[in-house]
Design a protein around this nucleic acid. Structure first.
Length: 466
RNA sequence: GGCGGCAUAGCCAAGCGGUAAGGCACGGGUCUGCAACACCCUUACCACCGGUUCGAUUCCGGUUGCCGCCUCCA
């Protein structure tokens, strides 16, 4: 069975067939680095990181490219305000970006190209567009002539007529047509700029992705991703640029993730309700944040609120507890089971359910449901008096495999208790042996106050942090 | 005006032709010295009105209500 991907270009799910068997090229539009990223920015990063991890899980060799827009109006404005060099500013926020997304379990891309490192590629790209008649120079700017490109509007399903009619599109004096968009901007006073055949200036926003995607992934890429709001105009313009340039399809599959709302309202600067990853991850376990985001299908909107994140935390806790209990049993019980195959098969069923879910346009909500099936199964197995090491080990391996795909690895590092706490646990065991339950409960309460929860099992007392 | 999305239990959320997955919360029971973890059980006229069909939450048309894009935006 093939992986199915919902393609914005065709508005339906299609079987995923990469250009080269076994290999996938992916490009995801990255952030403009003039501030810390907010959770809305984080969603596509998490979504496409998960897509990538799943493709790898399915055996594909993925080449993943995600850019940084490190020159643009907002960056220049922010740098001016802070009296800082644009390159210092962007460097700072690129570092912050990596810290934020790695906390959220996202792997680095194979390449993180920056606009400022690709000025030459961009200029060359624009020159070809001019040569082919798709672009024109005007007062030091260069514009793309949208009317020249037949397929303009094919991604967002906008007709050029409607775009013009409906529009709040301004007629720049420099543009021949209101729908034309800028490829190269002439520099204003004191702006960072580069030399070009059209004078000092810098790239427009859309051209960078076309140029960098081509340099790093070739003329046609398999999967191009980004937020829903990029569909128009950004991705539409990328298609216009790239396909005019190469005469080939720019991307086979276009994927777009939905928005995040805050308490049912759109996140926006004017409402001042945006949540920075940098801050929220200090208050909420970043694993919970990621789990929360993956609990909804990537194309649907997701509402962010304290309550919902709290629910997600409880759900993830259930998974983690089951995993840890499997581990505890693995380390503290003899190999006594005798029904190995039945359980192995049941585990395989869960794994299969997970794969079926994820094959269907990366349905992480159903994938997580499959993991909860595995949780229930593991908990039921732990009820058995006699367990087999191989089964327990298979539970653990499967948990690891599936959660790793979702970018939610379990923390397997040895977690040691302070010796005084260990002594208290030992003292409580002694008290229980002597049926001094008063003292035993007293110690348990004392430990709860220190964040240590105890659970008595047939295989001994286990503890966890709570 | 154009393009598009969404409406499923107290909350969140899958399903998209054969009478509703999963999670959180709640209630009842079991396990436990008591707990905790856990297990079992219980909980839905799928926004409304038409149509197609043997059969629709699922397809088509319409209504209502939310929301997004068309301007920088994840």
């Amino acid at each position: 069975m093939n992986i199915q991907i919902y393609n914005t270009l065709t508005r339906k799910k299609e079987p995923f067939i990469p250009q080269v068997e076994g290999e996938v090229s992916m490009y995801v539009c990255g952030p403009t680095v003039y501030n810390y990223i907010h959770i809305g920015n984080a969603r596509p990063v998490i979504v496409f990181d998960t897509v990538r991890k799943y493709l790898e899980f399915r055996g594909y060799d993925v080449k993943f490219v995600s850019n940084f827009t490190d020159v643009d109006d907002k960056i220049i404005a922010a740098a001016n305000e802070l009296g800082e060099d644009t390159s210092e500013l962007t460097e700072r926020f690129i570092n912050a970006y990596f810290e934020d997304v790695s906390a959220l379990g996202c792997s680095e891309a194979d390449v993180h190209p920056r606009v400022t490192n690709h000025i030459d590629d961009i200029i060359e790209f624009i020159e070809v567009l001019i040569d082919k008649g798709f672009a024109y120079e005007s007062h030091g700017d260069v514009y793309y002539r949208t009317t020249k490109f037949d397929g303009y509007g094919k991604l967002s399903k906008q007709s050029t007529d409607e775009l013009i009619v409906g529009a709040r599109i301004e007629k720049g004096e420099k543009k021949d047509d209101p729908l034309d968009f800028v490829l190269w901007k002439a520099a204003k006073e004191n702006e960072v700029s580069w030399k070009s055949p059209w004078g000092e200036g810098r790239p427009g926003w859309h051209i960078e992705c076309s140029a960098m995607a081509r340099v790093h992934l070739g003329d046609t890429i398999d999967i191009h991703g980004g937020g829903q709001d990029l569909t128009f105009p950004h991705h539409e313009n990328e298609i216009a640029q790239s396909e005019a340039m190469t005469g080939k399809p720019f991307a086979k599959y276009w994927m777009h993730n939905g928005y995040i709302n805050i308490d049912n309202e759109k996140m926006s600067k004017s409402l001042n309700n945006f949540v920075l990853v940098n801050e929220i991850r200090k208050q909420v376990d970043p694993r919970v944040l990621r789990f929360f985001m993956l609990s909804v299908h990537y194309r649907h909107p997701i509402n962010f609120s304290e309550e919902l994140v709290g629910n997600a935390a409880n759900g993830l806790e259930r998974i983690t507890t089951a995993y840890n209990n499997v581990k505890h049993r693995l380390e503290n019980s003899a190999d006594l089971g005798d029904q190995k195959d039945i359980w192995m098969n049941k585990i395989d069923e869960c794994k299969n359910d997970f794969t079926v879910a994820m094959d269907d346009d990366f349905n992480t909500a159903n994938g997580i449901a499959a993991i909860f099936e595995l949780v229930r199964l593991a908990n039921v197995y732990l009820l058995e008096k006699n367990t087999e090491t191989s089964v327990l080990a298979y539970f653990k391996t499967t948990f690891d495999a599936l959660m790793n795909v979702l970018g939610l690895p379990f923390n397997d590092a040895e977690d040691l208790l302070d010796t005084d706490i260990e002594e208290l646990i030992e003292e409580r065991l002694e008290a229980r042996r002597n049926r001094d339950f008063g003292r035993a409960d007293e110690i348990r309460d004392e430990l709860v106050a220190k964040g240590i929860l105890l659970e008595d099992t047939a295989q001994g007392t286990r503890w966890r942090r709570g």
